[in-house]
Design a protein around this nucleic acid. Structure first.
Lengths: 246, 246
DNA sequence: CAATTTTCATTTGTCAGACAATTAAACGTC
DNA sequence: GACGTTTAATTGTCTGACAAATGAAAATTG
């Protein structure tokens, strides 16, 4: 682990990269304790604040955890799927909002990925996943539900569908795509008839998953994707009309 | 943007969270300049090193960039897909290596996602994407190629296939799944016959994509997924035998 | 001797103040 | 007006210090 002292700027970034590479390569195994900040400062020939900045960078990526006290220090963190979910969702959300990604593009990606899960979900779903899907479908029928709450329930439904595939890697990848869509979905106003149609499709999806019918699940997801795109286009068209009216 | 001064520990984490939330909510738009470190220290009633640790956390996530000089400071960064790729790949790689994710699980996820792209790729592929796929297939036929180089070319082929879908969100999501598999793939030794079969399937995929035949592309991807799983199982079985032999 | 309490050394978290490096704008000079 | 020069602002880094937490060792007590 070495840094280049000739380029005086961004020492903390260089140190962070050196340690990160050591972790990725496996040179620093999980739960290994890093040298103390003072020792690292000595090794890299920098001051302790600089070392600390480097460690904070790594902590932001959940690569290390720190503990105070006599036997404390910085430890290589076992990156768990739950930790990675949050980062993945944050990153995906910002990517969508900062890059003028159209609703159509994001929606297309989301449903393409979800349809990739559907066959596995139909095959492996447990009673638990099915119950969650039914519960969310039921919640969506409540009359006083705000659009936001409706969307949140929609996300919960689709996450249950994805988790039913029983593949944590898929769940992790999909978490970003599904959750990041929520802010975009929240821009849509769902009429009672819209909701009815969506709830109907959700019910059909749950039915298909229950009966291990992957073809039906895929077909219904395709319909849901199409309908969602239609709704969004209507909203966009209406907004443009309103704009021209001003 | 406020922090809780009563819990004295992890002030930098609280400050980072406050600023991150402001960015996510849109209160701090892209390219907006944050207050100087001294001003932030004043606002949050902490010292400058503490503020700096918070800013480094955000820099690690590419949420801000810093610039020295008179008009310098920390600016809200436009998170680009290319920046996010790297983080996504790092996180995915570590997730797989640190959580004992089996080859089968990772492989299943990867091919499920890739097959989600295939119909779009078949529909929209440009001559450029096709040329990349052909070039990589050709490279894979070179006789002296190391297993590692073969895998690298394999990744390049599949990335071209994914990019052909013309959906940056999909490309971003898939980058993690495809690239994170590479260390696992590198554990496999490919015999000449193995390579021949894989190259043949790659050619068939490229053919299907060229002819906009999504069904054929999907079928061939399924075959490739199955064959990859077979190869991996053989390697694992062989390794277990070798272990018992010791 | 065993259990409990106290002390202590280690380590991270935070602070204050300082100086170097960089950068662009303001200023002065030709 | 064009072109160096100065200057102010800002980040990057360093030094030294103290507070807080924490586990281990030492001292105390029953």
């Amino acid at each position: 682990m070495k840094i280049d002292p000739t380029s005086p700027a961004d020492l903390s970034a260089q140190i962070a990269k050196a340690i990160r590479d050591a972790i990725i390569s496996g040179a620093l195994p999980v739960d290994e304790r890093l040298p103390s900040e003072a020792e690292l400062a000595d090794q890299f020939n920098v001051s302790r604040p600089t070392v600390r900045e480097a460690l904070k960078r790594l902590a932001a990526q959940s690569l290390i955890r720190t503990q105070r006290g006599a036997t404390g220090g910085a430890f290589v963190n076992r990156l768990r799927f739950e930790d990675a979910y949050g980062q993945q969702i944050t990153t995906s959300t910002l990517l969508l909002s900062m890059n003028d990604v159209s609703f159509a593009t994001a929606c297309e990606a989301r449903y393409a990925l979800e349809r990739a899960c559907a066959p596995l979900s139909a095959q492996r779903r447990t009673a638990d996943h099915l119950a969650t899907m039914r519960a969310e479908t039921h919640r969506q029928q409540q009359p006083g539900l705000t659009d936001e709450a409706f969307c949140a329930s929609d996300v919960a439904f689709h996450r249950a569908l994805v988790d039913a595939a029983g593949n944590p890697v898929l769940s992790y990848q999909l978490a970003g795509a599904v959750e990041a869509m929520q802010p975009l979905m929240n821009m849509i106003t769902f009429s009672a008839r819209d909701r009815e149609r969506i709830i109907g499709l959700h019910g059909a999806i749950a039915d298909a998953i229950e009966m291990h019918n992957s073809m039906a699940a895929d077909d219904t997801l395709a319909k849901l994707a199409e309908y969602t795109q239609e709704l969004a286009q209507a909203v966009i068209a209406q907004r443009n009309t309103a704009k021209q009216g001003n």
